[in-house]
Design a protein around this nucleic acid. Structure first.
Lengths: 340, 340
DNA sequence: CTTGACAGCCAAAACGTTTTGGCTTATAAT
DNA sequence: ATTATAAGCCAAAACGTTTTGGCTGTCAAG
């Protein structure tokens, strides 16, 4: 049925050893034999059995990704881009990318342990880090190779790619300050997540740098959805001294913020400025178009993928700590002059 | 370093055979031995090596998904739901889900062959079928086990889950006809895709059923994005006898259609009715909210996952052809009376 | 006392690769 | 004529598991 090295060996009257070595271009195989083996393998339709190879080589040739079903949605446009870029780098070199779903945080850590213990994967990819991430503590403790997309606050050493949210926030605040805004709000996800922490930190620092008072009541938390943005904006706008600008933790929230403003009979851009993070496709086509911080998703995925490959091969990662820079994209939601 | 059956065997003074059989609850192991083995395995932290097991059992215990990077975006909200539901069913029973990325259609078929040939996977998942799908022809010809989400037009027999787009379209047209619409347009993706074919077919049939003329000029094709919907709507509205209702092939396109209508100074719902397919979260929060055909994404993923598991195990699939029914969700974009 | 059944155990083979260490044979150097 | 070198090949072991077929001893039935 399925063709093995043994079949080729029988056909060409050589040993399995020689056939294997011929296919791997070892020097101790004569050119004639090599050619013969090659030809026969081709003709018989030989395909190496990766499972056998893995057993012998004691490597899984695979990378694990455990997706929290409760956490970052697969449908997040940016995450989709990151994932496909990383998957590309991983499969390009013949490794597999295994995707599992975890329903509860406890399951998640358990799954990491299983996957690595069972030798299903050589390295794992940790996404959506928290400030104090027990997954990372666990993996470090067990010496499991991994790469994280996202930092932690602890001073631990591990390969990690992240985006400089603080700086993105800084340029956003500067932009708003230059437009004359003095009361700026931030509505983001739970600050347990590292990126939200850095968004908040960048927010506070920037305000201070421009000598604005940091009003903690203008920093609110909600779900990372349109609904969450909508609700957060309603809360903010119903205060007796509402903000004149609202920065949302992601673009979907920003769209929700815009809806809330419009539902209150106010105009986005003139009455209240709005900005988001991400630059998803919708940001460009919303009404008004959305000012946002463009996150280099593809680049991030590509880098993570490359680092995961090195990690899985047990190679040293030359540059294990990368911080990517985002770009400010100014559109109508903060600058009405951009109305066509 | 890593604990194997041999280590346990040495420790408990039994053979590897007995240890293996003890752990698998074979009857020819005494209760005492079984308990001893269990305890020792636990204490030593034994985790079975799945690669060795796979080699012996001649199964990959894995399912392959090859995602066209050019085709259905991972970021499609519905696809994300389908994927996570399917991944859940697959990983729940200990199988792996392997994700690869294909950049060109040719690569894709090649990847299928490789993955199966190399014994990386036992079965594959074909998504986003075309009316005449060369992947399916190929897999059938080579007797590769697979499950498709989506039908083909040929009368081939293979396990497949799909959604009854024609019926969804039918209920949408009925809804619009009841509201008095006589000139209804459809803007969808390329009819090469099976689901678009059935959307169009359902569209034509429904019009005929309600004795409306089928104007082929009102059936247009564009990209499955907001931009595509926007452009399609502009084309349709610039005709000398424009439609009074536009059905879009998916919700993102429908949002684009709404933008185009609004940009022309018309009102969505009163001047032109709009409807979509999918019921993504945005549909509920857009202005106006979007009438749409809700597609049972989670259910679909779950079913596909279960069928893939059976397929990978070489089991007979009891019900290999399932057609799921969608539900019409009426909102403001077709029925202004629903404005709050 | 013999026979059969059964409980409990295990050696060995198998899955398909890669690697190790050596074995020939031929050629070149002494 | 011997010795060293190299080219070309291969048997066997290893990776960790499961399965096959058989072995030994005990006990009950005849």
């Amino acid at each position: 049925m399925t063709v093995t090295l043994k079949d080729i060996a029988r056909q060409v009257n050589r040993s399995v050893t020689t056939v294997s070595r011929a296919l791997h271009d070892y020097a101790d195989v004569s050119p004639e034999t090599r050619a013969l083996v090659r030809r026969t393998a081709e003709q018989l339709g030989y395909v190496p059995n990766v499972v056998a190879r893995r057993l012998q080589k004691q490597r899984a040739d695979a990378i694990g990704l455990i997706l929290p079903s409760y956490g970052p949605r697969l449908s997040d446009p940016l995450f989709g881009d990151i994932l496909s870029a990383a998957a590309d780098e991983i499969t390009r070199v013949g490794l597999d990318l295994l995707v599992s779903i975890a329903h509860r945080p406890e399951d998640e850590v358990e799954l990491y342990y299983q996957r690595v213990g069972e030798r299903r994967v050589d390295s794992v990819w940790v996404v959506h880090t928290r400030c104090h991430d027990m997954r990372i503590a666990y993996l470090l403790e067990r010496h499991v190779p991994f790469v994280a997309s996202g930092r932690v606050l602890e001073d631990w050493f591990f390969p990690c790619v992240d985006i400089d949210y603080a700086r993105g926030m800084h340029s956003l605040v500067l932009h708003l300050v230059q437009l004359g805004h003095r009361r700026i709000a931030f509505a983001g996800e739970s600050p347990d997540f590292t990126f939200v922490h850095y968004q908040r930190e960048g927010f506070r620092h920037a305000l201070q740098e421009y000598s604005l008072e940091v009003d903690e009541d203008l920093i609110v938390e909600n779900n990372p959805t349109q609904r969450g943005g909508y609700d957060a904006a309603q809360t903010l706008l119903s205060r007796r001294d509402p903000p004149t600008a609202i920065i949302a933790g992601n673009d979907l929230m920003a769209l929700g913020v815009m809806s809330a403003i419009q539902d209150q009979g106010l105009e986005v851009g003139s009455d209240v400025a709005v900005a988001g993070f991400g630059d998803i496709p919708l940001a460009e086509t919303s009404h008004p178009t959305l000012t946002t911080v463009r996150l280099p998703a593809h680049q991030m995925g590509k880098l993570v993928g490359q680092m995961l490959v090195m990690s899985a091969r047990g190679q040293e990662i030359p540059n294990p700590y990368v911080l990517l820079q985002p770009a400010l994209i100014i559109r109508q939601s903060t600058d009405l002059g951009l109305w066509l």
